[in-house]
């Protein structure tokens, strides 16, 4: 932003639009119309809908009733708990795996690196529906199912993976951990390649070991990346919907009902739009809080 030609703009600043202004508005017009109709309007509408009870012939204003229902509903707390369990087990572990894989890819040449990047990224290209279908069969409860027959080799008894409330959540977590971390690995690798070599050379002169270099140089320097991935991971995990919807339907006994599925069911299964909007807004506030926390943490971390 160089201010040397801002004088021409300043003269007409008050009300007159310069031709620059008009070009600007023309260029953003379509984007802004789409943005207003499909994001701004729905958000405002969601806010008002959350205070209403939806009826096909005109909704009625019910004040905070939907929020009261939300916070007194056992299923809501159960779904929040399930979402938290899912998040706590998938996000940090997946970050660790991605970091370790990226570290292992690092010593190879660019060519080999991109081969590994492609291999690990490939599952991310397939749709969630397709992957859910495949995992559904991997978890086939019959003894001929893939995972069961694999484990029977080790003498482990038949497990009804998705059908038992004891293992259903575990199964979804295991799937998330095995289904690939391509995106995170690639982002970590980019961050690792950005660590200046001079730091390692200096450390070598001091006789630092591999683990010391990892602990004192690499981990602090990729901390912003870790935070970024942590927060995007948490946000994504809070919104998880596909696996529960496709594989367990939230069951058994709501053991895998997560917030995303709960909102979906309230809206599109029971047509309780008001309640769904109220719950979605609660989710949005939680996500905003997590994002703000990230900005605070990132802000402290900018200088190193």
């Amino acid at each position: 932003m160089k201010g040397n030609h801002s004088g021409t703009v300043r003269t007409g600043r008050k009300w007159r639009l310069t031709s620059e202004d008009l070009w600007g508005y023309a260029f953003i017009a379509v984007a802004m119309i789409v943005f207003c109709v499909f994001t701004v309007y729905p958000v405002i509408s969601a806010f008002f809908t959350s205070f209403e009870e939806y009826k096909p012939l005109g909704s009625t204003f019910v004040a905070l009733e939907n929020y009261k229902t939300t916070f007194t509903n056992d299923l809501f707390y159960k779904s929040v708990w399930n979402t938290l369990v899912y998040t706590v087990f998938t996000v940090p572990l997946s970050l660790c795996i991605s970091f370790l894989v990226a570290i292992m890819i690092l010593p190879f040449s660019r060519k080999v690196q991109s081969v590994f990047k492609s291999l690990y990224y490939l599952p991310a290209v397939a749709s969630g529906v397709a992957l859910s279908v495949v995992w559904l069969w991997i978890y086939d409860p019959l003894p001929t199912g893939l995972l069961n027959s694999l484990l029977s080799v080790f003498g482990i008894d038949n497990v009804n993976w998705l059908g038992s409330s004891r293992t259903a959540m575990f199964s979804l977590i295991l799937m998330a951990l095995l289904a690939g971390h391509g995106t995170q690995i690639i982002i970590y690798l980019a961050a690792l390649l950005g660590v200046p070599n001079s730091l390692f050379e200096a450390a070598d002169l001091d006789g630092a070991t591999f683990l010391q270099k990892l602990w004192y140089i690499v981990i602090p320097l990729v901390k912003p990346t870790t935070l970024f991935l942590l927060v995007t991971g948490i946000i994504g995990s809070f919104q998880v919907f596909m696996n529960a919807y496709m594989m367990t339907g939230g069951g058994p006994d709501n053991a895998t009902t997560m917030v995303g599925l709960l909102i979906f069911n309230n809206a599109f299964k029971y047509s309780d739009y008001g309640l769904a909007c109220a719950q979605a807004l609660v989710l949005a506030v939680v996500i905003a809080a997590v994002s703000l926390l990230q900005f605070k943490l990132m802000g402290e971390d900018v200088e190193y």
């Binding site: 729905p42 958000v43 919104q239 809206a267 739009y273 769904a276 909007c277």
Partner: peptide
């Protein structure tokens, strides 16, 4: 202002907009 509005929009979870969008 408009750019920050766009940025904020990226943080809104799709569940919020999905129901009103569907109704619209």
């Amino acid at each position: 202002f408009l750019f920050y509005a766009l940025l904020c929009a990226m943080m809104i979870p799709y569940q919020v907009t999905q129901v009103p969008l569907y109704m619209l």
